[in-house]
C-alpha cells in the first residue's frame, strides 16, 4: 500500500504531469506564465484547491449520490477557489492583481474536476491527498518551467518572488522578443516543451 501511495504522488510529477502529459488546464497555463512568479503563484493556488477538493470529495464519496456528483464536486471546488481568492486578496494582493480573473477561473480548470471525478471519487483519503499534491506540484513545476523560458526570452529578467529578481540575465545588449510574452509565444513554448518531453520519454 505504501508503495502505491508513493506512486500516486510521483505520477503527477512526470507520468501524468498535467499540462504536458494530460494536456489539461491549458487556459491558465498559456495565460499566466509570462513570468515565473505568476506561474508559481497560479501553481500554488491550484495545488491548494486540488488537495483540499480531493480530500473532501474522497471523504464524501460514499455520501454523494452518483447522479448529482458533478454538481457536488463543483460546489466543493468553487468553495476552495473562493477561499484562495479571499486569502490571496488579504495576504498577497500584488499577486492577486496580476493573476486577476484567472484565480476564480480555477473552478473550471479541468485538472481539478478531472482529479475529483477520475481519482478522488474512487479512492481513499490518503491516496487522494497524495494524488492531489503530486498533480499540483507537477502543475506548479510545469508553469514555472514555462514561465522561466518565457520570462527570460520575453523580458530578459527572472522574477522568483516579489523583489527577488534578476534583471538583464542575458546581458544588457539582449533585445527581448516581446513575442514570447504574448499568447503565440506561449503556444510555441508549450509545443516545444511537449515535443522535448516526448522525445525524452520515448527513448
Amino acid at each position: 500500500m505504501a508503495k502505491s501511495i508513493a506512486h500516486e504522488f510521483t505520477k503527477g510529477l512526470w507520468e501524468e504531469i498535467p499540462p504536458f502529459r494530460l494536456v489539461l488546464g491549458l487556459c491558465p497555463t498559456l495565460a499566466v506564465t509570462k513570468t515565473v512568479e505568476n506561474g508559481i503563484g497560479m501553481g500554488v493556488a491550484t495545488t491548494f484547491v486540488l488537495v483540499f477538493s480531493n480530500i473532501l470529495v474522497s471523504a464524501l464519496r460514499k455520501l454523494i449520490p452518483s447522479k448529482v456528483r458533478i454538481a457536488c464536486f463543483i460546489i466543493i471546488i468553487a468553495t476552495f477557489v473562493t477561499v484562495v481568492e479571499l486569502l490571496m486578496q488579504a495576504y498577497a494582493y500584488k499577486l492577486f492583481m496580476k493573476l486577476g480573473i484567472f484565480i476564480p477561473l480555477i473552478v473550471v480548470n479541468c485538472i481539478v474536476l478531472g482529479r475529483a471525478e477520475a481519482f478522488a471519487s474512487k479512492n481513499g483519503i490518503v491516496a487522494s491527498t497524495a494524488d492531489g499534491l503530486g498533480i499540483g506540484i507537477g502543475f506548479t513545476l510545469s508553469l514555472s518551467a514555462l514561465g522561466t523560458v518565457r520570462e527570460i526570452l520575453g523580458s530578459g529578467s527572472l522574477t522568483i518572488w516579489g523583489d527577488l529578481a534578476f534583471h538583464n540575465i542575458l546581458g544588457a545588449s539582449f533585445q527581448p522578443f516581446s513575442f514570447m510574452v504574448q499568447a503565440p509565444g506561449a503556444f510555441i513554448c508549450l509545443g516545444l516543451m511537449l515535443c522535448l518531453m516526448n522525445l525524452v520519454g520515448s527513448k
Binding site: 464524501l60 455520501l63 454523494i64 449520490p65 448529482v68 454538481a71 457536488c72 460546489i75 466543493i76 468553487a78 468553495t79
Partner: peptide, 9 residues
C-alpha cells in the same frame, strides 16, 4: 446532500 453541501459551503 446538495442542500447541505451548499449551506456548509
Amino acid at each position: 446532500v446538495l442542500t447541505i453541501l451548499s449551506c456548509v459551503s
